[in-house]
Write a protein that binds this DNA or RNA. Structure first.
Lengths: 198, 198, 198, 198
DNA sequence: TGTTAAACGAGACGGTACGTCTAGTCTTGCG
DNA sequence: CGCAAGACTAGACGTACCGTCTCGTTTAACA
């Protein structure tokens, strides 16, 4: 990611919220987090980088965490498609590969967001909501697989998901090892043993 | 945890490092984190609570993260014994139950430590070291099980461990659901399927 | 002064300046200054109280100081009559009593205006003009008295006026003691010693 | 007044308040007020100029007004001596000349302080205290003159002082005409008519 | 009768200051 | 020397106000 030019030439929009401002803030927040001193980005720094008044940031976002959350969501928006081919093993593999790819791209953001969420309750809540939504997608996938008998009947879905997302966050936040397509393959196999019958 | 009396009556030890100071700092740090406004404890607050000079803290620890790390280690020291009965399923179950119990007791500390580690590289490094040590214990357990054929030969141990510790941290940091003995039982079963042969 | 209703029902006047707007702004500015947190009234507060857009205020007045100045002038307009009975002592007394009465009524405004004038050169200039006009009235009075020999021939008129208006502002801004009719009487006597000959 | 070097090389004093810091703050505050954009000096600007943390300023002074007040007091400290030769006319003249000279030197400070006092009640209170002390000095002088019969027996001392100090502040804040030794002479004559008998 | 020009409300925006907070460094003086 | 006390710098936090801007609506004046 290039160092992003000083934002300029952003015509006023009068009494309407200026979308360019929103863009600039979210982009700069994301970029700064990805930057060299990434961890710990200040609102002042974002405001300065985006050529935006601090006041404007606080007008639209209640806290730093909220800015990072929205920046992350926007960047992660690149559609993790939810496959449904009828075979859990392949669906899960595709879903995870896709998810991991998306997550790796916003790894910096996610770390910064987490740092915020660990101090700011509101940020934590927002993050949990986002996570819950994503979790629902995976649950749907697994439920279908379970219904088709592609998972042991006694499988504890929540536990399974905790293992999957747990591994993801663990690598992201703590050990910082990469989340590759290969990881997705291996992981989906431990969950949906491929030989499991129809 | 009771609100811990104001530390007092700590006689000088002259030119020797005063162990009581170390104790007071670590204890107060841990207690404050567990307290009502837990997240985000300041060095000033710790110093005040411990009746200790900030300077003294910085003489012995390089940063806030280091204090929290050591506090956590001390508290977690309550010996997670590493069982070796010859049966992976039961050993793993015992180990995880023990680990989860210990972790739940220092959950606040771990969250505070993580918040620090996400900003302070040094703290992160210290934490990773501690985590690696703990991981080695689990690896030993699994390796023995693998050697006895209690795990599928093709099992990727690192991935398995990422799943286990991932789940643990995921619940700790993000979803904040409890890590019970039951969790340990279920989890160890998904890893070492009890019926798996010798 | 009653808390002044929320301004409402002010029909548009199209491309003509709306006199009701001017009224509302000046009245609200004056009232807010007289209010409990009087010192330091913001344009936003005036706009809100007057139910007027900030833009409208800045269309008609160049700065906050200008608004306060005009508000003060309007309120002070209650005609300080310039007596000319032929006797300086009584004329001066009447003039001062009248002036003091008027000034006491806009004391809040004058303090607020002064606060502004001490920061904003333009406001200061406007205020000086107003003051100079009022000063001219007093000068006329004194000049006539001097011509009639009711003042010592060597009297320095400017110094005398500085003493009179100085006392007034001094009490207004600094010691905040009241400017009563009695003050006017005493003051006019020290200036135009009543026994002074014809 | 020269632009005052960037303050530097100010050795720590440990747990003792650093007098050099106090000096730097007061000096820079005074200098900035005297500077080209004199009116409206910010705490940030003072801190920057003095090479001092804002926090340090707020540790020792409760508000901007308090800083300006102390800066003014320090600068005005250049001992207005209180003469007592036994002749009111000459004593008063000397006192006023001295006072006016001192006041002219801190005119900028006094204006800035007044601007603050008109918004900040606490600053106003502090200023009033200082003014009252100075007023007491003058009162002593006049009381002695009155006792010696150098003033008309019916003279209202407070009114007289209001006229004197009123003129001073009026010129300082409003008309901005200079307070010269000549002013002192004229003024003292209107108060203590030189020919007034023993 | 339409068209245009200005007044107006709403309120976003950049800039700048406020006063508070924390991390981490430093010095004094006691024991 | 170890330590308590606490001053100090750096810089982030979130709030407030100023004066400028643009939008969309409303009416009066002009074509």
């Amino acid at each position: 990611m290039s160092p992003r030019e000083p934002v300029e030439a952003r015509p006023h929009t009068g009494r309407r919220r200026n979308p360019a401002v929103r863009r600039a803030v979210l982009d700069c927040a994301a970029d700064l987090l990805a930057g060299p001193d990434g961890m710990a980005v200040s609102i002042d720094a974002i405001a300065r980088a985006a050529g935006v008044s601090k006041h404007t940031i606080y007008r639209w976002w209640p806290s730093k965490g909220a800015v990072l959350l929205e920046a992350m969501i926007e960047r992660a928006q690149q559609e993790v498609t939810i496959p449904d081919t009828g075979a859990l093993a392949t669906d899960l593999e595709a879903f995870l590969a896709d998810t991991f790819r998306a997550v790796e791209q916003v790894a910096h953001l996610l770390r910064g967001l987490m740092a915020e969420a660990l101090r700011d309750t509101a940020a934590a809540e927002g993050m949990r909501e986002f996570i819950a939504a994503r979790r629902d997608e995976l649950r749907g996938l697994l439920v279908r697989g379970l219904a088709r008998g592609e998972l042991p009947a006694e499988t504890d879905l929540e536990l399974t998901m905790d293992q999957i997302y747990g591994l993801m966050w663990y690598r992201l936040l703590i050990v910082r090892s990469p989340l590759t397509t290969e990881t997705a393959v291996h992981l989906s196999r431990t969950v949906a043993r491929p030989g499991t019958p129809p």
